[in-house]
């Protein structure tokens, strides 16, 4: 795998990268692992979930948050970037169902690819897009295209409604029936949403955004607790059922 474009700014702090990839279709929720530099600082690889995929071109969205993502943002020689994957267990694909997708910040990225797939298998998709503020919202048109109805929630009310995605979730499930929900975002947000869904007996999955050591299951650095004991987020996840994971 190799980068085929320089990072393209898509909103405040968020960038899109295109990667050449040959292999079987990645499953939504899977991630690629990138070593952004050749040296030892930063040392570890970084996981990035898949935003979109078609015809040997894979797209990821990343948020500049530290040393590694700053290097990625400014990468002068993107063709030398070391990329491996896709890794991990992705979302469960459903057919002909009414589904709810809930994303927070950069966590919206894997749900975009998932949403595209779900629409192709006859699902009706309701999307709740959460963001700190309007300036951070990326690829608005793309999210519109791959959902039947879209709601924006911002912390400061600069786009859509002011409030948390969990508030919109509570409103929606009071008046509509959903077969399944998919969530990706910060842990507190996912816990809140999962608790609301479980109380209404709606099944669903979350994709964790844990800190990974290796991303391939050898270091036990990303261990999470589930009702069935410890699991490695990188290899047994990052997607887990809301009734299995202990958030």
């Amino acid at each position: 795998m190799k980068l085929i474009s320089k990072p393209e700014k898509i909103s405040k702090d968020h960038y899109l990268l295109k990667i050449q990839y040959q292999g079987s279709d990645p499953i939504p929720g899977q991630f690629v692992s990138i070593k952004v530099n050749e040296g030892t600082d930063p040392l570890l690889r970084r996981p990035f979930s898949i935003f979109d995929y078609s015809e040997n071109e894979l797209k990821i969205v990343f948020k500049v948050a530290g040393k590694a993502t700053s290097i990625l943002q400014n990468s002068a020689l993107p063709e030398n970037t070391d990329i491996s994957g896709p890794y991990g267990k992705g979302f469960t694909p459903l057919e002909n169902s009414k589904v709810l997708l809930i994303g927070g910040g950069v966590g919206n990225a894997p749900l975009h690819y998932l949403s595209n797939k779900l629409r192709k298998t006859g699902c009706n998709v309701t999307y709740i897009y959460g963001s700190r503020s309007a300036e951070y919202i990326y690829c608005r048109d793309d999210f519109h295209k791959c959902s039947d109805s879209t709601y924006y929630m911002t912390d400061d009310g600069t786009d859509g409604e002011k409030g948390f995605v969990s508030e919109k979730l509570s409103q929606l499930i009071k008046k509509e029936f959903f077969d399944f929900a998919y969530i990706c975002g910060p842990s507190p947000m996912m816990k809140l949403c999962a608790d609301i869904l479980k109380a209404q007996n709606i099944n669903g999955e979350v994709s964790l955004e844990n800190y990974f050591g290796c991303g391939i299951g050898i270091c036990s650095g990303c261990t999470v607790k589930t009702v069935n004991g410890n699991r490695r987020a990188c290899i047994d996840g990052p997607v887990f059922n809301i009734n299995e994971i202990l958030l």
């Binding site: 030892t40 570890l44 800190y211 050591g213 270091c219 036990s220 650095g221 261990t223 410890n230």
Partner: peptide
Amino acid sequence: GNEGNRIVETDSGILNSIGLE
């Protein structure tokens, strides 16, 4: 193994507190 954070990058290294899981 240990609760809480288990691994973090440092300059050219890592700190781990896996706790022998």
